[in-house]
Simulated assay, not measured.
Amino acid sequence: MNIDEFAESILLNLPYVPNDQQVQLIAALARFCSPLMPSDAVFLLNGYAGTGKTSVTGALVRALRDARIPVVLLAPTGRAAKVFSKFAGLPATTIHRRIYRTDGTGLGFGTAEVADNNLTGGVFIVDEASMIGESQSAGDVR
């Protein structure tokens, strides 16, 4: 599937007729998701509430799924992951759960290790990234 076909797939997955800026966004997202893009590239989407960010992202996720491109949906909180999952139609998880692997006791007392997050040819999408702040270690608390 070429870039134009992928952009058309995103448009077809959108539940409304997009405005001109949303059409430009969809074209940029289609280019970003192409195999021509470096694997470490980042696409940052921001905008005011009600501009269609979540709807376009949901359409992108459905188009990626239709194209059989692996996609991982992440959010900073469980609630944000639940909302994201509803709009995208795929399971979403918290960033922490995806990054770290625990001993599996579920008690929160075990050790956590960095998980293997290799996803060749896939796309990681983080929703509500503005909620992510700088963390402080216990020694930094004032």
Rank of each mutant, 00 (worst) to 15 (best):
S9C: 09
L11K: 00
N13C: 06
N13D: 03
N13E: 06
N13V: 03
L14Y: 03
P15T: 06
Y16L: 15
Y16P: 03
Y16S: 13
V17D: 06
P18V: 03
P18F: 03
N19S: 08
N19L: 07
N19T: 12
N19K: 07
Q22E: 02
V23Q: 13
Q24L: 12
Q24R: 12
L25F: 08
A27K: 10
A27V: 10
A28N: 13
A28M: 11
A28R: 13
L29G: 07
A30W: 01
A30Y: 01
R31E: 15
F32Y: 14
F32H: 14
S34P: 14
P35I: 02
M37E: 15
P38A: 12
P38H: 04
D40E: 13
A41T: 14
V42K: 11
L44K: 14
L44F: 14
N46V: 06
N46W: 11
G47K: 04
Y48G: 00
A49L: 04
A49I: 12
A49E: 04
A49T: 02
T51W: 05
G52K: 04
G52W: 00
G52I: 02
K53Q: 08
S55N: 01
A59N: 05
A59W: 01
A59D: 02
A59I: 10
A59C: 05
A59S: 05
L60Y: 08
L60R: 02
R62F: 00
A63S: 15
A63Q: 12
A63T: 12
L64N: 07
D66I: 03
D66M: 03
A67Y: 08
A67S: 13
R68G: 04
I69A: 02
I69Y: 01
V71L: 10
V71E: 14
V72R: 15
V72A: 15
L73D: 11
L73P: 07
L73R: 12
A75E: 12
A75F: 11
A75I: 10
P76H: 06
P76T: 13
G78T: 07
G78M: 11
G78Q: 10
R79Y: 04
R79A: 08
A80G: 04
A81F: 08
A81S: 06
V83K: 06
F84C: 07
F87L: 08
G89H: 10
G89Y: 09
P91H: 08
P91N: 11
A92C: 13
T93N: 00
I95R: 04
I95M: 13
H96M: 00
R97H: 09
R98C: 03
Y100M: 09
R101H: 09
T102D: 15
T102C: 14
D103A: 00
G104H: 04
G104T: 05
F109Y: 09
G110F: 09
G110M: 10
A112Y: 05
A112L: 06
V114T: 15
A115I: 06
N117S: 05
N117Y: 03
L119C: 11
L119V: 15
L119N: 02
T120M: 12
T120E: 15
T120Q: 14
G121P: 03
G122M: 07
V123C: 07
F124E: 04
V126K: 10
V126G: 11
A129E: 13
A129H: 09
A129T: 06
S130Y: 12
S130C: 08
I132R: 00
E134A: 00
E134C: 09
S135M: 08
S137Q: 11
S137N: 09
A138S: 12
R142S: 13
R142C: 05
